[in-house]
Nucleic acid binder design. Structure first.
Lengths: 200, 200
DNA sequence: TCTATATCTAGTCATTGTCAAGATAGGAGC
DNA sequence: GCTCCTATCTTGACAATGACTAGATATAGA
């Protein structure tokens, strides 16, 4: 990425976007522990205090990354569902695979999305995207279960979410037990239990 | 906690233990983001460079906390299994409840234990404890399934682990979907799907 | 008693996030 | 074209942190 657009003008032109791109690259290169506002500024070719005019604090920039990540996440789940023909169960399984695949393909961003902890990186965009993701999953589960009471559907959908999310985080943290970890496709092995989860 | 044991001696006496205790308290008060080696030193009543003789780096102290946490975790799972009478399924369910309960009772420590990420806080003690936890769970699942092929047992056990771990992390990160989150006991609601997970 | 070693203090350095003050650019109104 | 206002950016400063070094002090073993 070029430090500036062209000539060394005093104003950057689109610093906000440049900072976001630099932040994504930095995050994927060095991880969250080495993430630094000043390094983002350096990569964008501006002084260390310039980002303050676009992101009041480092957490705000990270929140922006999390929101964008969640929007890509929702799109990936939707694409997996749309592109899968066959039974409702097949569609749900495809979404589960897409879920874990997204996490494994974007470890630091996935961490930002879900690991806000007690002090979550909140933003309206993020909340909207999170709700959309949940709705997608809930609908897919409802399609599998057929006509049921609403609270039963949400309970089952929560279990599906937990199973898939747990698989993703265990894989990311290399905490998958030895046996399954050595398997050729540990994700598929775990997710093969998905249908059982939905039986009464 | 007293800064020193008694009189202001040059040597602390048991600085290593004092640092660990200070670190646990600090972690639970302020969270990982505000965790600082210098603050641990202050709380232990020593200079900022003193910890270096016991923990080469801040990560080493955190690794110690993670290892101790994992050992308590294993003990909690074992206790839940031992104290539960009845079917093998009942014991497994009790372990699942204990698993999530531990996570919710010790959020920062649980985070340390599992969120090492790409650069895990490794130590022999931690590995040993993690393996022991996995063995406990694996045995409990094997008891439920009865005589089966070993790889089938480990696959199911991994699914159980993922479901329980996913439940814990979603709860911790307040990422549980609205419906289940409003339930009186969301954990029990999700874990009620556990038996289905183990049916063929 | 004497000495080697472990433990602790004080000081230093580069780095970071945040703040304040001043320089520059671009646009709105005239 | 001109003025002025505001957003944007730079420079400089501050306190805090992790890590390193050198030196002081205590403890244990010969």
């Amino acid at each position: 990425m070029a430090a500036r657009k062209q000539s060394k003008t005093y104003h950057h032109g689109d610093l906000r976007e440049a900072l976001v791109l630099a932040a994504i690259a930095l995050l994927e290169e060095k991880g969250l522990a080495s993430f630094t506002l000043r390094e983002c500024a350096r990569r964008a070719g501006v002084s260390h205090a310039a980002p303050a005019h676009h992101f009041a604090t480092a957490a705000d920039l990270l929140a922006e990354l999390a929101a964008r990540g969640f929007e890509r996440f929702v799109a990936a789940l939707g694409k997996a569902a749309d592109e899968t023909e066959g039974t409702a169960m097949a569609r749900l399984a495809a979404m589960g695979q897409a879920y874990v695949a997204f996490a494994l393909a974007n470890p630091p961003v996935y961490g930002l999305m879900f690991r806000g902890g007690a002090n979550p990186l909140q933003s309206p965009r993020l909340k909207t995207a999170a709700t959309a993701a949940w709705q997608q999953l809930n609908n897919a589960v409802a399609a599998v279960l057929g006509p049921k009471r609403q609270d039963e559907v949400t309970a089952k959908a929560a279990a599906v979410w937990a199973l898939v999310h747990g698989t993703a985080t265990l894989m990311l943290d290399c905490k998958l037990p030895p046996g399954p970890a050595r398997s050729s496709d540990p994700v598929a092995q775990i997710l093969s239990s998905l249908p059982g989860l939905l039986r009464p």
